[in-house]
Design a protein around this nucleic acid. Sequence first.
DNA 1: CTGAAAGCGCTTACAG
DNA 2: CTGAAAGCGCTTACAG
Lengths: 347, 347
Amino acid sequence: MDEQTRSKSITIYDIAKEAGVSSATVSRAISGKGYVSETKKIQILDLVEKYNFSPNTFAQNLKTGFTKTIGFIVPHIGNMYFASVYYEFEKWASSHGYMTILLNSKGDYEVESKLLYSLKEKRVDGIVMMGGRMDAVELSEEYIREIREIKDLIPFVSCATMAERFGCAAVYTDDGKGVELLMTHLKSKGYNSIYMFGGGDEFYPAYLKKKYAYEFGKKLGMKVTVNWLTPNMNFDYRSGYIGMKMLLEKPLEAEVFCGVNDYVAVGARDAALEAGLRVPEDIAFVGFDDIGEETVLPTHITSVSPCYDVFGKKVFTTLHKIMQDKKPHDMKTSLIKPELKLRKSTK
Amino acid sequence: MDEQTRSKSITIYDIAKEAGVSSATVSRAISGKGYVSETKKIQILDLVEKYNFSPNTFAQNLKTGFTKTIGFIVPHIGNMYFASVYYEFEKWASSHGYMTILLNSKGDYEVESKLLYSLKEKRVDGIVMMGGRMDAVELSEEYIREIREIKDLIPFVSCATMAERFGCAAVYTDDGKGVELLMTHLKSKGYNSIYMFGGGDEFYPAYLKKKYAYEFGKKLGMKVTVNWLTPNMNFDYRSGYIGMKMLLEKPLEAEVFCGVNDYVAVGARDAALEAGLRVPEDIAFVGFDDIGEETVLPTHITSVSPCYDVFGKKVFTTLHKIMQDKKPHDMKTSLIKPELKLRKSTK
DNA sequence: CTGAAAGCGCTTACAG
DNA sequence: CTGAAAGCGCTTACAG
């Protein structure tokens, strides 16, 4: 990083001089846009190789107005659900020449706003926002306006449930389908009752799963008990653990306990094990999101998996399409089909 | 993203015109560098506020040569060790006006090289690299040269063990201290034998922990058995799980089983539980890295924690210092003092 | 304290 | 197919 090293940086003009052409021709040869004679092209590209030259991104950006950068906001980077979508998304983005900036809103509304602002400032070409405020069932007028403004300014894809409410492109898992898959399987294994819990019901990802389970249970002839609106319930391990402790004080109301995500399910399972119950002989657990990558940290929980590869790809292609269009885009919603991963927390 | 919206973007000239000053004065007023009369300054800043103006980063970068961007390479984003250091680092970086790009090398050597190249291309102001190849005990001449080249070009901090070998700034946890803390505690709880396993011994983070444990065990009068060079051993859950399965086929060689990290320890613990052993009554488990954030997904494993807050901050301040200096920096190594987190996997 | 001017390194109509 | 030239939006010596 010393001055000399920095300033030695080669430019398009150095290449042009050595090749005996103009900088415009070098630019055309490198970008592949516009005509350049085969001879000169080869000559220039050789020089590029020789000096290991790459065009200055900032000069390009300044000129073209594009940054080839995408901002990706998640509420919690440690949550494997978000990490997995990001991971798959990034593969596609980078293979298309985009660099992705991962940002953590910590689930904090103010931080989220600040991040959105800083991405605007950085003039990113696109924004992906996962979960957070956008998942909330009830929204303030002001927040809706904030999101509408940003999505009119910068290509924007939300991975929040029901995000079409904001008039933006949305990609999220089909929870209705997920619940159906899960309950059909449980029924086929001879289970006849299920208890839905965890999560904040003020957020769709919790609310809808419970609602769908309730409805689908009727159709299936399964008894569904829903734990609605328990205070301090959340999407984390602790909620599942504490919730289950309380449930264990009374006779069990169901054969299967379903967390709104795997973190809740794992917490509940641990509480049950601690109480001396056998899983799955005495009690079964299921969850959503498939957070336990086998080689990293398996949960052993039967789970509805979002198919992260399909998910991440869909998010990228959706955003990419919007970035390509010049005109404001039609809002478009894509539902990702989930699949069931069977593990030893159920029969 | 439509053309109109894009081009409406306001510049320093618009502000200058409305304030009746030159663009130079506006620039000075905004950056706070150079003299501007109080009256004009206030007037300009009001306009900035009014139009929600922020200077075009690319024009700034092009002019100044700085990008205010840092590249952060990790081998696996799903590993909570890397995720936690990143998380803490990013807090400091962003509070100093730096944007951090997180990149995943997937532990692949070629990908790592490509990422390094792309960061050079992006002209980031600094690079942090965690683990990966740099952790290897044996290195090719070529790789050493590659790292030396990049660190001479761009401010560079490595979080690999023994990274001072590359002549670059290094920040990593003090494994010697960690082993000492752990074993002293175990001894005080009445444990007299420990079995060290997991990891690839071709990497320092595994090799050194085993070595230190062996040495420190002598001093403490504890029996230390070290599982060296087991093929296919790694830093993941599966290694711990499979490794423990094999160990359980014979009479146990120790009271405590220590994984080179928590993933290994959790895998081993699960194998023991499956075999019907009680933890910690029949067998105890310990690990390193403290990957189980309590509210997210607790491991319940007693662990040597790197103190992520101190770690992340140190990485940033080290990098920041190098970025400030004009001259090539002295290589500097900082060891992070670990602390012990007691959990129910030990007495 | 302030402005005119050069220049950062590209891209892209435009005119040949 | 090619080059001269303008311009993207800033910053910063330089000269007042």
